[in-house]
Amino acid sequence: MDLTPLTIDVGVLVSKTVTSLHSHLVTRPTGRAVRLAIEAQMASTGVQSLSIIDLSDVTILDFSCADEVIAKLLQGYLEPESPEAFFMFRGVRESHRDQIQVVLERQALVAVAETDTGVRELLGVIEAYDTRVWQLLETEGPLVREDFARMFPEPILDDVLDRLRKRRIVFQNPISGRYHALSQLVDDPL
């Protein structure tokens, strides 16, 4: 099992993909081209992967591009036959948040984001209880199920952990059974 993070700089991809000097992430064809470029880079990874999509150099992100580069990217890897891909979006600015939130809500998706000030959070659609469980893992993890159970003794805990895992916002090591926040895998790869 190799979950070494693959860092993809969207700012570089935009300038490589769009045949001009334009650097803003606007228009649907641009977004589609950038998404395909990301997917091409990911093709070399194994059946499991963790990718850091770096938006630090993106000033303007419109809704069409957010839909292509974030919502459709996530959605594509949630298909049953697709590789088990995990994503963390880095360098998310306040001016990106609205667009990302809207496109994720529209598709009922959730994503792990790291803001330009280094704060890690969930964007998109998620229950408050699920967020609390994710937050515990983010601050205390890696954790085993019993660690969660001390804080969250409710019978729905297993369902919540299963849901977080299936939505690819936490990773469960199939050997140790430990749960990892994606940010921990970035900082300390398996």
């Binding site: 803003h24 228009t27 649907r28 303007i60 992100l61 419109d62 809704f63 069409s64 001016s95 609205d98």
Partner: peptide
């Protein structure tokens, strides 16, 4: 000062309406 981003997003989306 940050409103230029939202302003640009409006312009981008409304212009794309023509193309698409």
């Amino acid at each position: 000062a940050t409103s230029v981003v939202q302003f640009s997003v409006i312009l981008s989306e409304v212009c794309q309406n023509i193309v698409e």
